[in-house]
Design a protein around this nucleic acid. Structure first.
Lengths: 216, 216
DNA sequence: CAGGGACTGCACCATGAGTGCGGTTTTCCT
DNA sequence: AGGAAAACCGCACTCATGGTGCAGTCCCTG
C-alpha cells in the first residue's frame, strides 16, 4: 500500500485533542466492561479523566456518540488482532488446516490473557443493551460479527479444499461456531471468574475442527 | 414442627399481592431483556403495570431486590424447562447417548422459539452488568451456570460409560461447551436478529457430541 | 500576534432512584 | 358484621445523572 509520507495531521497537533479523547474512551471502555453502558456515568469519567463536563461534550455529542466511537475503535483494533494472529500462524505452518489449528491455539492463549486482565467484550456488552443506541451503533455490531464470521468461513473453505470434511456439518455453521464459542466463553468465564474456561472452550472447538477434517 | 392451623397465608390472600408482584416482574423482565437492567426505569414499569411508586416499593426494597427476584424466578423456571426437556428424551429413547442427542434436538427447537419471541437471556444480561448488583445476585448467577454445567456433565458421564469416547477431550469441557454455545448463540442470534443461528449452533454442538462418542 | 483548537466555569433543566409517611381500599379471619 | 392486616395510593422531597447553553480562557501554530 502506498501511504504518503506526511499524510493527515502533522504529528504534534493531533496529540492534544486526540489524546484526551482517547483517554476518555479508555476510561469509558473499562467502566463499560465492568458495569455496562447505562451504569457508566459521565461524571465518573470526568473525574477519572480530570476534565470538565464541557470538555467531555466538546469531544462527544452525547453518550450514544461515545458508544459509537467505542465500538468503532474496538472494531479496528480487534480485527487486526485476529488477522495478525492467524497471519502469524500462516507464516509458521503451510497446511491451511494446521495453520488454522495453530491460530486457534494462539487465540486461546491471547483470549485467556485478555479475559484475565479485563473480562468482557464490548460487542457482547452492547448487544445486551442495544435498544439504548441508535441504528448506527446497532449496525456496527452486526457488521463486526459478520465480518469475523466471514473471515473464519473463508479459512475453513480453504481448509476443506485440502482436507475434505469427514463429518457432515455446514462450514458456515462451523465458522459461526467459533464466534459463538468466543462470545459464550466470555460470558461463562466472566460469570464464574475463571478466565481459563475461555481458553479451554476455544481448544474444545479446535478439537472439533480437527475431528471434522482429520477424523477421530 | 407444630404449625398452627391457620399459619402461613391462606391460599386466597396470597393471590392479590403475588399477582401484582408477578406482573411487575414480567414487565421488568421484558424490559431488561430488551434494554438491559440499568436502562430499565422504574417509572416505566409503574406505567405499564398501572401502579404507583409506593406500590412498587411495597413489593421490592429497591432495584437490586427486583434483580434478585428476577434471577431467582428465572432459575426455578429454566431449571425445570431443561430438566423436563431431557427427561422427555429419556422416556422416548433408552440409550443415554441417543437420549442426549434427542434432548439437544428438542432444545434447539425450544431455544429457537424462545429467541424468536423474546431474544436474550436474563443470566447473560446480568453478567454483563454485574457490578451494579450485590453479592447475592452475583452468587446466584454463578450457581445457575454451575448447576446447569453439572447436569450436562452428569449426562455425558452416563453416556461415556456405554460409549467410550473416541476423541480426546475432557468431558467437563464438553459439558461446559453446551452452556457456552447456548450463551454465545444467544448473543450472536440476538445481535444479527436471526433466531435460527441459535438452533443451528446447538445442532452443531450435537454433531460434535455424536462424533465424540460414535466417531465419524 | 491573530485565530482556531481545546478546553474551563457556571447556571440551569429533566428524568430517574429512592425515602417518608399518612391515608385509603381490599381481603380475609373470626 | 367487624376488625386487622395486606395491598396499595398521594404527595412532597432529596440526590445523582444526562444534557444544554454560553461566555471566557489558555495555548499552539502559522
Amino acid at each position: 500500500m502506498v501511504q504518503s509520507l506526511t499524510r493527515e495531521r502533522p504529528v504534534q497537533r493531533v496529540a492534544k485533542g486526540e489524546q484526551t479523547r482517547d483517554r476518555i474512551m479508555d476510561i469509558a471502555e473499562a467502566s463499560v466492561l465492568e458495569k455496562g453502558f447505562a451504569a457508566t456515568s459521565i461524571d465518573e469519567i470526568l473525574f477519572e479523566a480530570c476534565i470538565t463536563k464541557s470538555g467531555f461534550f466538546y469531544h462527544f455529542r452525547d453518550k450514544n456518540d461515545l458508544a459509537l466511537a467505542l465500538i468503532e475503535r474496538f472494531r479496528e483494533r480487534n480485527l487486526s488482532i485476529f488477522e495478525e494472529n492467524f497471519a502469524r500462524a500462516d507464516e509458521l505452518v503451510e497446511d491451511p488446516l494446521q495453520a488454522f489449528l495453530l491460530g486457534l491455539k494462539l487465540l486461546a492463549e491471547i483470549m485467556a490473557e485478555v479475559q484475565t486482565e479485563r473480562p468482557g467484550c464490548l460487542v457482547s456488552t452492547f448487544v445486551f443493551q442495544d435498544q439504548q443506541f441508535d441504528g448506527r451503533v446497532r449496525q456496527m455490531l452486526v457488521d463486526v460479527i459478520q465480518v469475523w464470521c466471514a473471515q473464519f468461513l473463508a479459512r475453513l473453505e480453504r481448509v476443506a479444499e485440502v482436507h475434505p470434511p469427514r463429518v457432515d456439518i455446514p462450514l458456515a455453521d462451523l465458522a459461526d461456531m467459533l464466534m459463538t464459542v468466543i462470545d459464550g466463553g466470555i460470558i461463562v468465564s466472566k460469570a464464574l471468574q475463571e478466565p481459563q474456561i475461555m481458553a479451554r472452550q476455544i481448544l474444545a472447538y479446535r478439537t472439533f475442527v480437527r475431528t471434522v477434517f482429520l477424523g477421530t
